[in-house]
Amino acid sequence: MNDLFVYTLRLGDDALISAQRTAEWIAAAPQLEEDVALGNIGLDQLGQARSLLQYAGSLDGRTEDDLAYFRDEREFLNAQLCELPNGDFGFAMARLLYFATYQHLLYDELRSSADETLAGVAGKAVKEVAYHVDHAMQWVLRLGDGTEESHRRMQAGLDALWPYTAELFESDPLVQRLPVAVDPSTLHDAWLERVLAVIDESTCERPSSSYQHTGGRLGRHTEHMGYLLAELQHVARSHPGATW
């Protein structure tokens, strides 16, 4: 498989799997307004996924649907952070803060990629993701600096997801030799600064972890990924080629 295909798939799978988890909040968020907000965010992520998977597919003779619905777990290249089950609302906002801040830095760099398609997708997405960061930040601040219970849950979410953040910034030979790619390791310092500033202001403690999960970029996933894909793919696989 060529490098550009694999790289595009990594970005597209992050967006697709995040969209699936975000969409699970619709009709389950704490209030109607948040249902709509998360619906908008999930659809932004899905839009990014579609553009990226269409592009990846065009390099490989497949469609976006082939890539979304007819790949098996080991062929998905998203970071494990994206696939973890939703947990409570504090957990969800911690993930959105970590992930959207990463995406924002990434797309901001990718805008000037020599690959016009990737640059175009990034240019559109960077504005969407700036809003996702803001939304997550507003909630982390309010929950962290809210009641005793909301503080406890916000801290628990930040702590539980911290060991899944290093994977976002892993460098490997592929991103180093592919000139149109952004090496994610170059984004880590800026990410850390931005995320820790929010955590400090929220009155939560800075999380730390000696262990960091890895493997998503190689197709190795958590036990939750299979269940997620079953839900995502089962209609398309039960009725292959169906249209409406």
């Binding site: 307004e33 709509v36 907000a37 803001d134 507003q138 309010r142």
Partner: peptide
């Protein structure tokens, strides 16, 4: 938050 919710809704 009201302003953000209004933007979304």
């Amino acid at each position: 938050m009201a302003l953000r919710n209004a933007r979304d809704v």
